[in-house]
Amino acid sequence: MHYKKFLFILMPAILCCFSSCFQVIEEINVTSNGSGTVTLTVNLSSSKAKVASIMLLDSINGYKVPTKQKIQQEMDEVVVYLKNSPGIGNVTKRVDFVNYIATVSFSFQNISNINNINQRVLKKLKVNAVSNSSYTYNTTSNIFQRNYAHTTQAVLQYNKLKPEVKNVFKEATYTSIYRFDRPVVSMSNPLAKTSKTKRAVMLNTGILGLINGKTNISNKIILSK
């Protein structure tokens, strides 16, 4: 998902004093009929002391620091939007202001339901995102596909950031986990690995690689019939 963009565009103020890393985790559980659940997590805990001190400020390095209320409000708007999206249900959110971890979970009837959601959610958050990622699941052939194409927009947006904010992304990580109810037969992305049960695939990479296009997270996962 485009959470990386969400981060480096929406929250530069929060990020701009970090020297530590942060985590973005995308988990998708897909059942054999194409329905499933999504959990998105952004974990800033390793820099919580700095985030806490920044949150006391009004702005930093020219970026406006959002208040707790503002963050809650934005999250509430995302939840409302998701609830009103076709094929989406069971929307929940959790914002931990002690450890600075935010999580949004929801279920979908068909994987195609989540394809446009990210872009719309980002638009809701006043982030001008470019759709470069989609998911498909063919219930007949049991092939799950994550199509991803790097967009130069990401580099352009990144280059606009101040050097101190750019440093934040050097150590930041992005993790995608896809879980299935049947074993994985093969997958196309050599960066990904399968779990012991062979029913989950994980790809863990640095966010900077995604921004500059050096890392491709596309994956074609063939499941057993």
Partner: peptide, 10 residues
């Protein structure tokens, strides 16, 4: 607090 994954099913 960090997120970690088990090896069985991540």
């Amino acid at each position: 607090t960090a997120n970690e994954y088990d090896e069985d099913n991540f």
